[in-house]
Amino acid sequence: MITIESFEDKPNLQEEFAYRQIGSITIQVDPIDASTSLEFVMDYFKKNPAHAAIPIERNGVMIGILDRSQVEKMTESAWGRFWQKDLDAYITSPLLTLRADDYIEKNITKVTELNTEKGARFFAVFYRKSFFGIVGLREMLTRVTELRNRDMEKARIVQQNLLARDVSKKHPRYSIITWNRMANEVGGDFFKEFDVEGQNRHIIGCFDVSGKNVAASLSTMAIGSFFTALKYFDLGDRFGEKTTILMDKYIDNLTPSDMFITAALCYVDLTSNEVLIQNCGHTTIYIFVPGENNKVVGKALNPNLPPLGMGIIETEEQTSYRVPIVSGLRIVLYTDGLTDMVTSDGVRFEDDKTRDLIASVHTKSEADTAEAYTKAIDSWIHEAMLPDDITIMDIRFR
Rank of each mutant, 00 (worst) to 15 (best):
T319Y: 09
D248Q: 02
G23I: 02
N107H: 14
I91E: 07
T92R: 15
K212F: 02
E5N: 13
I277L: 10
L308V: 08
D237A: 10
G328A: 00
T343C: 02
G119W: 09
V135Y: 02
V167I: 15
S6P: 06
D67R: 09
M1C: 11
T284I: 11
T178P: 02
Q70I: 12
N107L: 10
A372M: 05
V268T: 03
V347I: 15
K73G: 08
A155N: 05
V186P: 00
G346P: 02
Y286D: 08
T97K: 14
I223N: 04
G298V: 04
I287R: 01
R322H: 11
A183F: 03
D102G: 06
T391A: 10
V214S: 08
I63V: 15
C206S: 13
V158M: 12
S320N: 04
I65G: 07
N48I: 02
R398F: 13
T97H: 09
A222R: 07
A263K: 01
K192E: 06
I204L: 12
Y267I: 00
D166Y: 13
A52S: 12
R156F: 01
H51E: 14
I104S: 02
T228M: 09
Q21Y: 06
Y44K: 06
W83F: 15
Q28S: 09
Y19K: 12
R81T: 12
